[in-house]
């Protein structure tokens, strides 16, 4: 079963706010100068910010903020965030892979930015909504 796709807009301001809240001040997430000097196309989102957005999608699908029991991803491609008001978008989709008898639902998740997958092996196990 396919779950409804959720779209998240990501701007530079979001990355600054996430840096402050998470304590991850790596300058590749806020300085174009540093990002390009290490071979990136520009400032990229924290992988953990992208994963947090996927986590929002998963808890929304599960219908409960505390439903996640297992959640893992592989970061395969950076989410480049331009320095403008539009930013970029991350689209999160998922399929229900399995509903177990002990009340768990396993999801296979995909996250894309500009049509390209930014995560692989993204999987979440949530308590099955009652």
């Amino acid at each position: 079963m396919e779950l409804p796709t959720q779209t998240f807009r990501v701007t530079r301001a979001d990355l600054i706010r996430y840096a402050g809240a998470s304590g991850d001040f790596n300058p590749i997430h806020w300085s174009d100068r540093v990002a390009t000097s290490v071979g990136l196309p520009g400032v990229i989102a924290h992988g953990m910010f992208t994963m947090a957005l996927v986590g929002r999608a998963v808890t929304t699908w599960a219908g409960a903020p505390d439903a996640v029991v297992d959640f893992g991803v592989r970061f395969t491609r950076p989410v480049v965030v331009p320095d403008d008001d539009e930013g970029t978008e991350v689209e999160v989709a998922a399929k229900v892979k399995e509903v177990t008898e002990d009340g768990l639902t396993r999801l296979d998740v995909t996250a894309t930015c500009r049509g390209e997958k930014v995560l692989s092996q993204a999987r979440a196990t949530v308590r099955t909504p009652r």
Binding site: D14, R17, A21, F49, G55, P65, D66
Partner: peptide
């Protein structure tokens, strides 16, 4: 602060009474 930074608006992240209901 963390929930706000990721845009997570569920009351259980913000309001102790909502969390206690869960």
């Amino acid at each position: 602060e963390f929930a706000t930074a990721i845009g997570a608006t569920d009351p259980a992240h913000h309001d102790p009474a909502a969390a206690r209901k869960l």
